[in-house]
Amino acid sequence: MLRIAVQAKGRLFEETMELLAESDIKLRPAKRTLLVQSSNFPIEVLFLRDDDIPQSVATGVADLGIVGENEYAEKKEDAEIIKRLGFSKCRLSLAMPKDIEYPGVEWFDGRKIATSYPVILEDFLSARGVKAEIHVITGSVEVAPGIGLADAIFDIVSSGSTLVSNRLKEVEVVMKSEALLIGNKGMTDEKKEILNELLFRMNAVEAAEDKKYVLMNAPKDKVEEIISVLPGMKSPTIMPLAQEGWCSVHTVLDEKRFWEIIGKLKALGAEGILVLPIEKMIL
Protein backbone atom coordinates (compact mmCIF):
# COMPACT_ATOMS: atom_id res chain seq x y z
CA MET A 1 0.00 0.00 0.00
CA LEU A 2 1.33 3.40 -1.03
CA ARG A 3 0.45 6.46 1.07
CA ILE A 4 0.26 9.87 -0.63
CA ALA A 5 -0.08 13.14 1.29
CA VAL A 6 -2.17 15.86 -0.35
CA GLN A 7 -3.35 19.30 0.67
CA ALA A 8 -6.59 19.15 2.67
CA LYS A 9 -8.31 22.07 0.90
CA GLY A 10 -7.88 24.82 -1.66
CA ARG A 11 -7.09 24.92 -5.37
CA LEU A 12 -4.21 22.44 -5.12
CA PHE A 13 -6.53 19.98 -3.34
CA GLU A 14 -9.14 20.27 -6.08
CA GLU A 15 -6.67 19.82 -8.93
CA THR A 16 -4.95 16.92 -7.16
CA MET A 17 -8.23 15.07 -6.64
CA GLU A 18 -9.13 15.69 -10.29
CA LEU A 19 -5.81 14.15 -11.39
CA LEU A 20 -6.35 11.09 -9.19
CA ALA A 21 -9.90 10.68 -10.52
CA GLU A 22 -8.68 10.94 -14.14
CA SER A 23 -6.05 8.32 -13.29
CA ASP A 24 -8.99 6.04 -12.32
CA ILE A 25 -8.14 6.01 -8.63
CA LYS A 26 -11.44 5.77 -6.82
CA LEU A 27 -11.64 7.31 -3.35
CA ARG A 28 -14.60 7.09 -1.04
CA PRO A 29 -15.74 10.62 -0.13
CA ALA A 30 -15.54 11.15 3.61
CA LYS A 31 -15.89 14.39 5.55
CA ARG A 32 -13.38 15.17 8.30
CA THR A 33 -11.36 12.02 7.58
CA LEU A 34 -7.58 12.38 7.46
CA LEU A 35 -6.90 9.05 5.73
CA VAL A 36 -8.91 7.63 2.82
CA GLN A 37 -8.14 4.35 1.02
CA SER A 38 -8.75 3.75 -2.67
CA SER A 39 -11.25 1.01 -3.53
CA ASN A 40 -9.51 -0.05 -6.75
CA PHE A 41 -5.79 0.79 -6.38
CA PRO A 42 -3.25 0.05 -3.59
CA ILE A 43 -3.01 3.64 -2.42
CA GLU A 44 -4.32 5.68 0.50
CA VAL A 45 -4.56 9.46 0.67
CA LEU A 46 -3.47 11.39 3.75
CA PHE A 47 -4.93 14.91 3.98
CA LEU A 48 -2.56 17.46 5.55
CA ARG A 49 -1.73 21.16 5.63
CA ASP A 50 0.40 22.02 2.62
CA ASP A 51 3.39 23.08 4.73
CA ASP A 52 3.37 19.73 6.57
CA ILE A 53 3.61 17.63 3.39
CA PRO A 54 7.39 17.90 2.69
CA GLN A 55 8.30 16.77 6.22
CA SER A 56 5.75 13.94 6.22
CA VAL A 57 7.30 12.56 3.02
CA ALA A 58 10.90 13.06 4.12
CA THR A 59 10.31 11.25 7.43
CA GLY A 60 8.32 8.38 5.87
CA VAL A 61 4.93 9.24 7.36
CA ALA A 62 3.84 9.32 3.70
CA ASP A 63 5.57 7.69 0.73
CA LEU A 64 4.54 10.41 -1.70
CA GLY A 65 3.22 13.94 -1.57
CA ILE A 66 1.68 16.42 -3.96
CA VAL A 67 2.76 19.88 -2.89
CA GLY A 68 3.47 23.32 -4.31
CA GLU A 69 7.07 23.88 -5.35
CA ASN A 70 7.08 26.98 -3.12
CA GLU A 71 6.48 24.85 0.01
CA TYR A 72 9.02 22.25 -1.10
CA ALA A 73 11.67 24.94 -1.59
CA GLU A 74 10.81 26.69 1.69
CA LYS A 75 10.99 23.59 3.89
CA LYS A 76 14.16 22.11 2.33
CA GLU A 77 13.25 18.61 3.49
CA ASP A 78 15.13 15.55 2.26
CA ALA A 79 12.53 14.33 -0.23
CA GLU A 80 13.05 13.91 -3.98
CA ILE A 81 11.09 15.44 -6.84
CA ILE A 82 9.55 12.59 -8.84
CA LYS A 83 7.40 14.51 -11.31
CA ARG A 84 6.40 18.07 -12.16
CA LEU A 85 2.63 18.05 -12.51
CA GLY A 86 2.06 21.27 -14.45
CA PHE A 87 -0.92 22.61 -12.49
CA SER A 88 -1.46 25.07 -9.62
CA LYS A 89 1.07 27.40 -11.22
CA CYS A 90 1.98 30.65 -9.48
CA ARG A 91 5.05 32.71 -8.64
CA LEU A 92 6.71 34.06 -5.53
CA SER A 93 7.39 37.76 -5.91
CA LEU A 94 8.50 40.86 -4.08
CA ALA A 95 5.94 43.66 -4.14
CA MET A 96 5.98 47.23 -2.86
CA PRO A 97 3.64 50.25 -2.74
CA LYS A 98 2.76 51.18 -6.32
CA ASP A 99 3.34 54.92 -5.85
CA ILE A 100 7.03 54.46 -5.02
CA GLU A 101 9.56 54.32 -7.86
CA TYR A 102 11.52 51.05 -7.94
CA PRO A 103 15.23 51.50 -8.74
CA GLY A 104 16.23 47.84 -8.35
CA VAL A 105 16.65 45.12 -5.74
CA GLU A 106 18.92 47.37 -3.69
CA TRP A 107 15.77 49.29 -2.67
CA PHE A 108 15.01 46.49 -0.19
CA ASP A 109 18.27 46.98 1.70
CA GLY A 110 17.38 47.92 5.28
CA ARG A 111 13.62 47.66 4.59
CA LYS A 112 11.03 45.57 6.43
CA ILE A 113 9.54 42.78 4.32
CA ALA A 114 6.53 40.71 5.39
CA THR A 115 6.34 37.12 4.15
CA SER A 116 5.31 33.54 4.85
CA TYR A 117 8.43 32.31 3.01
CA PRO A 118 11.44 33.62 4.96
CA VAL A 119 13.88 30.90 3.80
CA ILE A 120 13.38 31.50 0.07
CA LEU A 121 13.44 35.27 0.59
CA GLU A 122 16.63 35.18 2.70
CA ASP A 123 18.40 33.05 0.08
CA PHE A 124 17.38 35.47 -2.69
CA LEU A 125 18.43 38.61 -0.81
CA SER A 126 21.70 37.14 0.49
CA ALA A 127 22.77 36.15 -3.01
CA ARG A 128 22.42 39.82 -4.00
CA GLY A 129 24.06 41.29 -0.93
CA VAL A 130 20.81 42.79 0.37
CA LYS A 131 20.13 42.88 4.11
CA ALA A 132 16.46 43.36 4.98
CA GLU A 133 14.40 42.89 8.11
CA ILE A 134 12.11 39.92 7.47
CA HIS A 135 8.80 39.74 9.32
CA VAL A 136 7.22 36.27 9.22
CA ILE A 137 3.45 36.46 8.81
CA THR A 138 0.90 33.71 8.17
CA GLY A 139 -2.26 34.80 6.44
CA SER A 140 -2.95 38.09 4.70
CA VAL A 141 0.60 39.22 3.98
CA GLU A 142 -0.54 41.79 1.41
CA VAL A 143 -2.09 44.08 4.05
CA ALA A 144 1.21 44.58 5.92
CA PRO A 145 2.41 47.72 4.07
CA GLY A 146 -1.01 49.35 4.35
CA ILE A 147 -1.08 49.07 8.15
CA GLY A 148 2.54 50.11 8.60
CA LEU A 149 3.84 46.66 9.55
CA ALA A 150 6.26 46.42 6.62
CA ASP A 151 7.65 48.39 3.69
CA ALA A 152 7.10 45.57 1.19
CA ILE A 153 5.92 41.98 0.92
CA PHE A 154 7.15 38.68 -0.51
CA ASP A 155 4.24 36.41 -1.36
CA ILE A 156 2.49 34.13 -3.85
CA VAL A 157 1.12 35.88 -6.94
CA SER A 158 -1.34 34.28 -9.37
CA SER A 159 -3.37 36.90 -11.22
CA GLY A 160 -2.01 39.93 -9.35
CA SER A 161 -5.49 41.22 -8.48
CA THR A 162 -4.84 41.01 -4.73
CA LEU A 163 -1.78 43.24 -5.13
CA VAL A 164 -3.77 45.81 -7.11
CA SER A 165 -6.54 45.91 -4.50
CA ASN A 166 -3.91 46.64 -1.83
CA ARG A 167 -2.15 49.31 -3.93
CA LEU A 168 0.95 47.19 -4.44
CA LYS A 169 3.03 46.40 -7.51
CA GLU A 170 5.08 43.32 -8.32
CA VAL A 171 8.72 44.26 -8.86
CA GLU A 172 10.79 41.05 -8.59
CA VAL A 173 9.79 37.48 -9.50
CA VAL A 174 11.94 35.33 -7.22
CA MET A 175 10.70 31.88 -8.29
CA LYS A 176 7.99 30.20 -10.32
CA SER A 177 6.05 27.38 -8.73
CA GLU A 178 3.86 24.47 -9.77
CA ALA A 179 2.56 21.29 -8.17
CA LEU A 180 5.19 18.62 -7.59
CA LEU A 181 4.95 14.91 -6.90
CA ILE A 182 7.63 14.28 -4.28
CA GLY A 183 8.74 10.97 -2.79
CA ASN A 184 10.49 9.41 0.18
CA LYS A 185 14.00 8.28 -0.71
CA GLY A 186 13.68 5.00 1.18
CA MET A 187 10.68 3.42 -0.56
CA THR A 188 10.69 -0.38 -0.82
CA ASP A 189 10.79 -2.13 -4.19
CA GLU A 190 7.14 -3.13 -3.74
CA LYS A 191 6.11 0.48 -3.24
CA LYS A 192 8.23 1.57 -6.21
CA GLU A 193 6.28 -0.85 -8.41
CA ILE A 194 3.01 0.76 -7.31
CA LEU A 195 4.55 4.20 -7.93
CA ASN A 196 5.52 3.19 -11.47
CA GLU A 197 1.93 2.16 -12.20
CA LEU A 198 0.69 5.46 -10.75
CA LEU A 199 3.14 7.41 -12.93
CA PHE A 200 2.05 5.42 -15.98
CA ARG A 201 -1.54 6.52 -15.38
CA MET A 202 -0.61 10.13 -14.66
CA ASN A 203 1.52 10.32 -17.81
CA ALA A 204 -1.38 8.98 -19.88
CA VAL A 205 -3.65 11.70 -18.48
CA GLU A 206 -1.00 14.36 -19.10
CA ALA A 207 -0.37 13.22 -22.69
CA ALA A 208 -4.07 13.59 -23.51
CA GLU A 209 -4.32 17.12 -22.12
CA ASP A 210 -5.41 19.69 -24.72
CA LYS A 211 -5.53 17.01 -27.43
CA LYS A 212 -8.41 16.20 -29.81
CA TYR A 213 -9.01 13.09 -31.91
CA VAL A 214 -10.06 14.22 -35.40
CA LEU A 215 -11.70 12.12 -38.13
CA MET A 216 -12.46 13.46 -41.60
CA ASN A 217 -13.38 12.38 -45.10
CA ALA A 218 -10.91 13.54 -47.74
CA PRO A 219 -10.49 13.23 -51.51
CA LYS A 220 -7.68 10.79 -52.29
CA ASP A 221 -5.95 13.22 -54.63
CA LYS A 222 -5.58 15.70 -51.74
CA VAL A 223 -4.37 13.24 -49.08
CA GLU A 224 -0.67 14.12 -49.40
CA GLU A 225 -1.41 17.83 -49.02
CA ILE A 226 -3.70 17.18 -46.05
CA ILE A 227 -1.03 15.06 -44.33
CA SER A 228 1.49 17.88 -44.81
CA VAL A 229 -0.58 20.26 -42.63
CA LEU A 230 -1.30 17.71 -39.89
CA PRO A 231 1.14 18.00 -36.93
CA GLY A 232 0.02 14.63 -35.52
CA MET A 233 1.99 12.44 -33.14
CA LYS A 234 3.03 10.15 -36.00
CA SER A 235 1.69 9.41 -39.46
CA PRO A 236 -2.13 9.74 -39.52
CA THR A 237 -4.32 6.71 -40.16
CA ILE A 238 -5.70 6.53 -43.73
CA MET A 239 -8.60 4.18 -44.58
CA PRO A 240 -10.49 3.81 -47.88
CA LEU A 241 -14.19 4.67 -48.06
CA ALA A 242 -16.90 2.89 -50.05
CA GLN A 243 -17.25 6.00 -52.21
CA GLU A 244 -14.72 5.93 -55.05
CA GLY A 245 -11.95 8.53 -54.77
CA TRP A 246 -12.44 9.21 -51.04
CA CYS A 247 -10.76 8.04 -47.84
CA SER A 248 -11.03 8.59 -44.10
CA VAL A 249 -8.19 10.33 -42.25
CA HIS A 250 -7.73 9.95 -38.46
CA THR A 251 -5.26 12.02 -36.43
CA VAL A 252 -4.61 13.81 -33.11
CA LEU A 253 -4.46 17.61 -32.95
CA ASP A 254 -3.31 20.02 -30.27
CA GLU A 255 -6.24 22.20 -29.20
CA LYS A 256 -4.09 25.35 -29.35
CA ARG A 257 -3.74 25.05 -33.14
CA PHE A 258 -7.06 23.34 -33.76
CA TRP A 259 -9.01 26.08 -35.59
CA GLU A 260 -6.01 27.15 -37.64
CA ILE A 261 -5.50 23.60 -38.95
CA ILE A 262 -9.20 22.85 -39.44
CA GLY A 263 -9.46 25.88 -41.73
CA LYS A 264 -6.60 24.55 -43.87
CA LEU A 265 -8.17 21.08 -44.02
CA LYS A 266 -11.49 22.48 -45.23
CA ALA A 267 -9.70 24.50 -47.90
CA LEU A 268 -8.11 21.27 -49.15
CA GLY A 269 -11.50 19.58 -49.48
CA ALA A 270 -11.85 17.72 -46.20
CA GLU A 271 -15.49 17.04 -45.25
CA GLY A 272 -17.49 15.51 -42.41
CA ILE A 273 -14.87 16.53 -39.85
CA LEU A 274 -15.59 14.90 -36.48
CA VAL A 275 -13.80 16.05 -33.33
CA LEU A 276 -13.67 13.88 -30.17
CA PRO A 277 -12.13 14.51 -26.74
CA ILE A 278 -9.27 12.28 -25.59
CA GLU A 279 -9.41 11.03 -22.00
CA LYS A 280 -6.13 9.06 -21.91
CA MET A 281 -3.27 8.64 -24.36
CA ILE A 282 -0.62 5.92 -24.04
CA LEU A 283 2.62 6.92 -25.71
Rank of each mutant, 00 (worst) to 15 (best):
V141E: 06
L125F: 05
S116Q: 05
E178A: 11
L180A: 00
K131T: 12
E80Y: 01
E74K: 00
F13E: 03
A5S: 10
P219Y: 11
E209D: 10
Q243S: 07
E71Q: 07
V171Q: 11
G148H: 02
P277T: 13
I238K: 02
E225F: 09
G263K: 09
S93R: 01
L2E: 06
Y117M: 00
I153W: 09
K9A: 14
A144E: 09
S88G: 07
L195H: 03
E271Y: 01
L27H: 02
L85V: 06
S228I: 09
F124R: 02
T251C: 15
P103S: 07
G232C: 08
T16Y: 05
K212V: 12
E14D: 14
F13Y: 14
G104M: 13
A30E: 09
D63H: 13
G129D: 12
K234S: 14
A114C: 03
E77V: 00
E224H: 02
I120L: 01
Q7Y: 04
I66W: 12
L149K: 15
K256P: 01
V67K: 09
L48C: 07
G232M: 04
L180Y: 09
K185E: 08
A179F: 02
L215S: 11
A270R: 12
F200G: 14
S23C: 10
R28P: 05
V105P: 05
S140G: 05
M187S: 06
A179S: 13
A114V: 01
F154Y: 13
E209N: 11
K264R: 15
R3G: 00
N166D: 07
R91P: 02
V157Q: 07
T59C: 07
L168W: 08
E178T: 05
A58D: 01
V157L: 10
D123N: 03
D155F: 10
C247L: 08
S228L: 04
N70H: 04
Q7E: 15
E178S: 09
K98P: 04
S93N: 08
G245L: 03
E14L: 14
E255C: 08
E15P: 04
S177I: 06
K211I: 13
L195P: 02
E142N: 15
E190R: 10
N184M: 11
Q55R: 14
L195M: 14
L85C: 07
V157T: 08
S56I: 04
I262R: 13
L268V: 02
P240N: 13
E44A: 08
A150I: 13
I120F: 00
V136G: 09
V174F: 12
S23N: 03
K112T: 11
D63S: 13
D109M: 07
Q37G: 04
E206K: 15
W259C: 03
A152H: 10
L168N: 09
G232E: 02
V252Q: 01
M239I: 13
K191E: 15
I82A: 14
D151W: 08
H135M: 15
S116H: 03
T162P: 00
D189G: 06
L125W: 07
L2Y: 03
G139E: 05
